[in-house]
């Protein structure tokens, strides 16, 4: 069985979530072929072998430097056919999920997104999907021979299992019609840890009292190599950009550690963080509902606690 894995990159580097998609396909027990589109560093591509890719395809056509959903779906369909692969695995993302949907529709595959662990193949092929914004799971049988699986962060974790792989160029035929959506420009934070990719997230709420106080959270995030997030009121007030809003109608995160500072813990916010492995809540109100969802809590003034926490973390390293 050949499994194709679509790997995403940012600024030439493979995304962590895509490395995990390779590890997931390897753990499924097939021959894993990874494919990257557009400009990616060679050593990054080779490194996919370490996570279990036997073969790495690189479609380096410069027309693929822009990640247009239809174009990517068309290239992946061709790669599946060329490799004789029945299954496509990728990471859930703003690009991966729509691409998964279009590929599955093209090839008539059973489709599952938000998959949180390896499939159960003891009877058929059953995947576990996160539903109700992390409040429940659905066990769903994928009946077709062809399958497209989009996994959530921390579905299997990343393990080193192999050695660097050879890169094979892949040439796809690109149809003009697929370029109907034109990307005019992109606005992107650079050099930051991306929220959906981060193992640790430091989030601030209205208790931070204003955007001018974010510096102490950014210092803490830097000490932890974490991404920064925020609650919905904070992004609604324009204190932080919308892509940092964590919650029901914002980004859903699944980090190892989520640190919430000055966030009361409305149910809509909890919906975005309930897949976190550990939750730390720092709030001056001992009645804040977030404490009920936390593993560790501190009641107190964030402006005193956060700098101390940053120091203690630096000291512990």
């Amino acid at each position: 069985m050949v499994i194709l894995v679509f790997v995403e990159s940012a600024e030439g580097k493979i995304k962590n979530t895509s490395m995990e998609a390779v590890a997931y396909a390897h753990a499924m027990g097939g021959d894993v072929t990874a494919i990257a589109l557009g400009a990616v560093e060679k050593v990054e591509l080779e490194s996919l072998g370490k996570y279990g890719a036997k073969k790495v395809l690189h479609a380096a056509d410069e027309k693929l430097n822009q990640d247009i959903i239809q174009v990517y779906a068309a290239v992946l369909e061709q790669a599946l056919q060329a490799e004789g692969a029945d299954t496509l695995v990728l990471a859930n993302s703003s690009l991966g999920t729509p691409v998964a949907a279009r590929v599955a529709t093209k090839i008539g595959a059973s489709l599952a997104s938000n998959v949180v662990e390896l499939p159960d193949t003891s009877s058929g092929f059953v995947v576990k999907q996160s539903i109700y914004t992390g409040k429940a799971f659905a066990l769903v049988s994928l009946k077709n021979q062809k399958k497209v699986i989009a996994i959530r962060k921390n579905a299997v974790g990343i393990k080193d299992v192999g050695s660097p792989a050879q890169i094979t160029p892949f040439t796809a035929s690109l149809a003009d019609a697929d370029f109907a959506t034109k990307i005019i420009s992109t606005e992107k934070a650079t050099g930051e840890v991306l929220l959906p990719e981060a193992d640790i997230v430091v989030s601030g709420g209205r208790g931070m009292k204003g955007p001018e106080h974010w510096g102490i959270l950014e210092d803490l995030a830097k000490a932890l190599n974490a991404a920064t997030g925020c609650s919905k009121p904070v992004s609604d007030l324009g204190w932080r950009p919308h892509h940092e809003h964590v919650g029901q109608t914002g980004v859903k995160v699944a980090p190892q550690l989520y640190i919430a500072v000055g966030i009361s813990g409305a149910i809509q916010h909890l919906a975005g963080v309930n897949s976190s492995k550990y939750i730390v809540v720092i709030n001056k109100d001992p009645e804040a509902p977030f404490f009920k969802a936390a593993d560790y809590g501190i009641v107190g003034d964030a402006f005193e606690i956060i700098p101390k926490l940053t120091e203690a973390i630096k000291a512990a390293k």
């Binding site: 990307i183 420009s185 992109t186 950009p241 919308h242």
Partner: peptide
């Protein structure tokens, strides 16, 4: 919206 920013289309 994309991870870490936005794309104008």
């Amino acid at each position: 919206e994309i991870e870490g920013g936005k794309e104008f289309i």
